[in-house]
């Protein structure tokens, strides 16, 4: 087994290779504005480091967000197209689950990433492997009661200390964690979700106001 994992749902462009036992190569760069440019060279570099070619990969794992859409789509489109070209399965993993897994906590906690516009993408976990709420997007103040007293990880938690006073690392998701989580689930015979994006928001679309009169009154 050789899994190629990638995630572009947070400011990190992150790629990892997992051979069924453990991660054999990985790369993470944080640059929220250049997901499109950075992802493919990162994949190329990780493969070169492992002295492998892409056609050795037996499965793709892609972070499905939630995350800012433009970046999120870079990873998912890349994963989809690899799946088509290589004829291998493409698995989705919730990006928040990847962060939770990397947090390595055995107690209830929260994962929150930055959703911009003063909001966070978030979910609650019973432990690092067990999510207990659906991913949601909210203003930190509006969920303060639901996350009160809980440790929290992710850039969204670190950004809003009033709501998440017990926030700590990891800040961004790593494909290495995503790959380990996916490998564990696949080995246990679990079904992973389809690699479709979790947008959680409707597209911004202003319906133009009724036709504006141009004749001066």
């Amino acid at each position: 087994m050789l899994l190629l994992a990638l995630d572009t749902a947070t400011p990190a462009v992150t790629v990892a290779l997992h051979d069924g036992r453990d991660v054999i190569a990985s790369s993470s760069q944080v640059d929220a504005r250049r997901h499109g440019e950075l992802l493919l060279p990162a994949i190329d570099r990780v493969l070169a480091e492992a002295r492998l070619r892409l056609d050795a990969v037996t499965g793709i794992v892609a972070g499905i967000g939630p995350g800012p859409y433009t970046g999120l789509r870079v990873g998912l489109m890349t994963a989809d197209t690899f799946g088509l070209a290589l004829g291998v399965p493409v698995h989705g993993v919730c990006t928040l689950d990847g962060l939770a897994y990397a947090a390595d906590l055995q107690v209830p906690f929260v994962v929150a990433t930055d959703a911009r516009r003063k909001e966070v993408y978030w979910a609650r976990y019973a432990d690092s492997r067990t999510r207990v709420t659906d991913p949601a997007v909210d203003r930190p103040a509006d969920i303060a009661e639901q996350v009160e007293g809980l440790p929290a990880v992710g850039a969204g938690a670190l950004l809003y200390p009033d709501t998440f006073p017990k926030a700590h690392e990891p800040e961004h998701v790593s494909a290495a964690a995503l790959a380990r989580l996916a490998a564990e689930k696949l080995a246990a015979g679990e079904e992973l979700p389809a690699p479709r994006p979790l947008y959680l928001r409707r597209p911004d679309a202003q319906v133009p106001k009724n036709y504006k009169v141009v004749t001066p009154k």
Binding site: Y69, R73, A85
Partner: peptide, 19 residues
């Protein structure tokens, strides 16, 4: 459109690289 172009560019890069 920037976001729209990026989807096509991501697909084309992945396809070319994989092939």
């Amino acid at each position: 459109l920037a976001g729209a172009l990026l989807v096509g560019v991501s697909a084309a890069k992945a396809y070319a690289y994989a092939l």
